[in-house]
Design a protein around this nucleic acid. Sequence first.
DNA 1: TGACATAGTGTGTCTGTGACACTATAGTGG
DNA 2: CCACTATAGTGTCACAGACACACTATGTCA
Lengths: 222, 222
Amino acid sequence: MRTTMKVTVDVVIFTIQEGVLKVLLIKRAIPPFIGQPAIPGGFVLEDEDLDQAALRELREEAGLSDVYLEQLYSFGKPDRDPRGRVITVAYFALISPDRKLTAGSDAATAAWHPMDRLPPLAFDHATILKYALERLRNKLEYTTVGFQLLPEKFTLTELQAVYEAILGKKLDKRNFRRKMSVLGILKPLREKRRGGQRPAQLYRFVAARFEKLKDKGILFPF
Amino acid sequence: MRTTMKVTVDVVIFTIQEGVLKVLLIKRAIPPFIGQPAIPGGFVLEDEDLDQAALRELREEAGLSDVYLEQLYSFGKPDRDPRGRVITVAYFALISPDRKLTAGSDAATAAWHPMDRLPPLAFDHATILKYALERLRNKLEYTTVGFQLLPEKFTLTELQAVYEAILGKKLDKRNFRRKMSVLGILKPLREKRRGGQRPAQLYRFVAARFEKLKDKGILFPF
DNA sequence: TGACATAGTGTGTCTGTGACACTATAGTGG
DNA sequence: CCACTATAGTGTCACAGACACACTATGTCA
């Protein structure tokens, strides 16, 4: 009774690169599963909340702070860690592709992997990733998490590409734009993105307007 | 580092009685918070999965088995338990009102409380309950959890009452019936509920048909 | 047997969704 | 400088689901 256990947090970190959804994996430096790719994570310390532990891991393992972070699910099969009884509280984080991974303790071994074509993962991390992807897809439909995967300024085409990458299907350009327009949560800037052919209008996400929609129970249909 | 902690599961058990949503609370028999109402729960044992622990608590504290159970969220503020560091993985369960609580170890002290007018709760259990209610409301809109709160045979009026009790608002009778009818997940039985005035048609939930709807991405709008 | 209580039923309007193709604008290179 | 090219941007129609709304049907009970 009153068995004590170790508790870890594992953080699934998503981003979009070249139009594909990617996840940050580290190469394990210590046993078990040494050399194998894994979701970044670590033990929860004595005096920190779970969320704090996840934020710390983000900072330590990827040099990231100020990111979208949300608790995902807790996993606790007795044999999920060969070292003994370890419960893990999984989180998922979203970062924009313009964020650079700065050197954290294990940053050298951290790399982005496309969500299709994943390598075999340590522990039950494949299960966790599958769960995270499902959650991300669901969240996309009734929240604004999509914006978290873009820089502050973005074009509608870029925004649509994020949705398509995550949902894994093409969306109609006109319908997509109409919905965004109706929601009124995008503010056009006095600026255009040049470099392609025809320059594109840049937008910024206006969180305040979204809060009002939430209160009214209006969701995001895609 | 590698601090060990105690891990508990707490199970928020909902039911509907007399048309109101109720939650099962026990009176704590031991410190801390002795004598105060709390969500039933207990420590996760060395060799059991989190889900198993939640099922065991359901059995031990309320004499219930074979119920709808789902992991809710994990709570881990360092000071949430005065005895020391305790992480809790919260679950929520739904049971039909015809289920009797059989004598478990603490069954004598377990009682149903209406979700409006809750007493002050031990630990951070008020937070957990609030979270559970929110989740239940959301789930109601895109799953069939509503049926878990009714006996196997039920009338449409009873089903509607469940939705109204949880959502906290009146629904239109004709619209409600039309939606259920379109979904085709209810099978009318060759039986009526007598005792009121005009006898009412009894129905049974047909899970198989719902699975097909899920595959097509059809949800539950209310 | 009549009053009462609860069960059960249909329509019209509005709003949101999905399918669909062309014009506008700047860049690039001959 | 002009033609070609690549990407941005724009409107309509048909259909389905959602909501508002009021009366009839059937059994019970006094």
